[in-house]
Structures are given as structure tokens and as C-alpha cells.
């Protein structure tokens, strides 16, 4: 894939992701979706990183990584299936929306407690190193996660064992209601130094700079088998979740973030590089919208999972206690 194709594919994923995001938020407001954590504003940093990855690389992502997943080939239908918790959802409707899983695309299953995906990411990287494989692990998290013991544990372990892990901090400057200034007194990328690993900061709103840094760092991680912390600075344009009302705590802010909207920045640069024309961009966006509308309507019609799925997958084999409870309830 040449540079142009690479960026066109990336931009298409951004547009698709934005269209999906808008649709889900709207559907939630209409009472058709229970809950959702919008990804608006974080498309460029996720996709810029994803562009530099290989298929075999493993991602321990968090709950705001839909753009990342779409770019790596997870079909929008699968995202919507998870959000609806319908009969086609791989998770069998067990998790609330935004907690995706896709083994086929090397995405782990997502949990709610933040940063708890980080220590397992180091274990997965240890396995790679132990088996002398060439893939790497990426783990993603928000700025709030940098305060957790799991962040500390994982950063330290990855450095001590020299593991091929990319720690991607998606700094959208808000942990629900807590602004970054009250989360930490040190820039997040600088924390890497304390663990003996490399830390870099990048403008996460710019697809082009994100890809440039990600490419260099990922190549190095793959080659040297050593971790890196990338702080991609972005902005949470939307609320934390559809249950959140930022008007309560974002009162002093003068902006909705739209002047730094990664879509606008990417579009400008796509045109500058002659990768796309303004007309082509408009076409991509309207196609994405149409496509998402169609898929959403189709997936919305699917029924809930059968009740026979309720008591399975607790263990490989069920036990008498679960069997008895199943008998009583179903």
C-alpha cells in the first residue's frame, strides 16, 4: 500500500467512525440504544497508530476505541451488534455497550475498571518475547488511567522485562468530570522516564503527525523489544458517556473543541497532499452516513440473544450449582 492509499483508507475509517458515533449518540437520545461512550475527537490518534501496526499485533484496548477497531477491519455491524446486545453479538449481549471484543481482529475483550487492561498487556508481550515472535502489544487508556496502580504496575513491568508494548495514552483531558490539571502534576509522557522507558508526546488531533510518530516508535518497539509510552493529546469533544452532562463541570470552557477537530485537520491535509479532493471527501462522508444508517436499521431488527446463553461460558464446563440455578430461573 502506498502512502496515498494508506491515508485514504485511514480517512475513510475516520469518516465511518464519525458517522457511526453520531448515529449511536442520536439513537441513544431516541431511546433505541441503552448507553454509549462517544469517540468523537479521538479518531486521528487511534487510526494514526493503527496505520503503523501489523495484523498479528495484539490490542488491549479500552472502551473508546471504535475508530481503532473499524480501521483494523472490525465491521461496523459487529460494533452495533455489541451496542445493541443482540443475537449476533459475539459477547452474547452480556456486556453493556462500548465493551467490545474481537478475537478475529486481535482485539481483547474490554472491562469497565480503567487501566486493568494494562497489566495483562504486559503478560501478552511477555508471551511474545518468550516465544520469540515478532508481533507487539498495544494497550490504550485515557488520561485518568495514569493515576491508577495498574498503570504503575504495567509500566514498571514492561520496562523491567523489556517488553514489546506500546502504551497509548489517549489524553482527551477529561476523566468524566476531572480535568487533566487535577489528575496529575506531570505531563503523562514524562512519567515514562521514571520507569526507564521512552516517552513521547504527539498531537493526537493530527492524523499525519500521529502516524509519523507511531511508525517510528512501533518499528523501534518491534526491533528492540522495549516498551514506549505515547501520549496523544486530544480533546473529548463529546461527553464521557451518554449518561453524562458536561454542562455541569465544563462551564469555564470557551470551546467545544471543534477548531481542533481531527476530521477538519485531516481533511485539510488530505487536500494539501492531493490524496483527496473536497468533492471526494464529501462523497466519503455521505457514503459513510448512508452506510451506517442502513447497517444500523438492519442490526436493530435482530432479536435479543436466546436465554440459553445466560448460563454458559462461566466455566468451560458448567457445574451443578449453575445447572440448578438455571433450572430454577429458566
Amino acid at each position: 500500500m502506498d502512502e496515498k492509499e494508506l491515508f485514504v483508507k485511514a480517512y475513510k475509517a475516520m469518516a465511518l467512525s464519525r458517522a457511526l458515533d453520531r448515529k449511536i449518540v442520536m439513537a441513544q437520545r431516541q431511546g433505541r440504544v441503552g448507553f454509549y461512550t462517544p469517540t468523537i475527537g479521538q479518531e486521528a490518534l487511534q487510526i494514526g497508530l493503527s496505520m503503523a501496526l501489523e495484523k498479528e499485533d495484539v490490542v488491549y484496548q479500552y472502551y473508546r476505541d471504535v475508530p481503532f477497531m473499524l480501521h483494523r477491519g472490525v465491521p461496523p455491524a459487529a460494533i452495533i451488534d455489541q451496542i445493541m446486545g443482540n443475537s449476533s453479538d459475539v459477547e452474547k449481549g452480556r456486556q453493556m455497550p462500548s465493551h467490545y471484543s474481537s478475537k478475529q481482529h486481535n482485539f481483547m475483550s474490554i472491562q469497565s475498571p480503567v487501566a486493568t487492561n494494562l497489566p495483562p498487556a504486559t503478560g501478552a508481550a511477555y508471551a511474545i518475547k518468550y516465544r520469540k515472535k515478532n508481533n507487539i502489544v498495544v494497550t490504550t487508556f485515557g488520561d485518568g488511567s495514569s493515576s491508577t496502580p495498574d498503570f504503575h504496575a504495567a509500566m514498571n513491568l514492561a520496562a523491567v522485562y523489556e517488553l514489546p508494548v506500546v502504551f497509548l495514552c489517549e489524553n482527551n483531558k477529561w476523566a468524566i468530570s476531572l480535568p487533566i490539571e487535577k489528575q496529575t502534576k506531570v505531563e503523562i509522557w514524562k512519567k515514562a522516564d521514571a520507569y526507564g522507558m521512552k516517552g513521547v508526546k504527539v498531537d493526537g488531533n493530527d492524523l499525519f503527525s500521529m502516524y509519523e510518530i507511531a511508525k517510528i516508535e512501533i518499528e523501534r518497539v518491534r526491533k528492540e523489544k522495549k516498551p514506549v509510552l505515547i501520549e496523544a493529546v486530544s480533546y473529548r469533544i463529546g461527553p464521557h458517556s451518554t449518561s453524562d452532562d458536561p454542562n455541569k463541570y465544563r462551564t469555564a470552557e470557551i470551546t467545544d473543541g471543534s477548531e481542533k477537530d481531527p476530521m477538519t485537520i485531516a481533511e485539510k491535509k488530505m487536500i494539501e497532499h492531493n490524496y483527496l479532493t473536497a468533492e471526494e471527501i464529501e462523497k466519503i462522508k455521505s457514503d459513510a452516513k448512508e452506510n451506517i444508517e442502513k447497517i444500523f436499521d438492519e442490526r436493530e431488527k435482530l432479536p435479543a440473544p436466546g436465554t440459553d446463553t445466560l448460563f454458559t461460558d462461566v466455566y468451560e464446563k458448567s457445574n451443578w450449582i449453575i445447572d440448578e440455578e438455571k433450572e430454577e430461573i429458566l
Partner: peptide, 16 residues
Amino acid sequence: VELGIVGMAIGMALAG
């Protein structure tokens, strides 16, 4: 780091 020991073990298990 107990949480790291267990967390790391979980990732190892997930990786086969």
C-alpha cells in the same frame, strides 16, 4: 507488585 503478577499472568494465559 501482586496486581502486576496476577495481571501479567492473565495476559500470558490469554496469549497461550
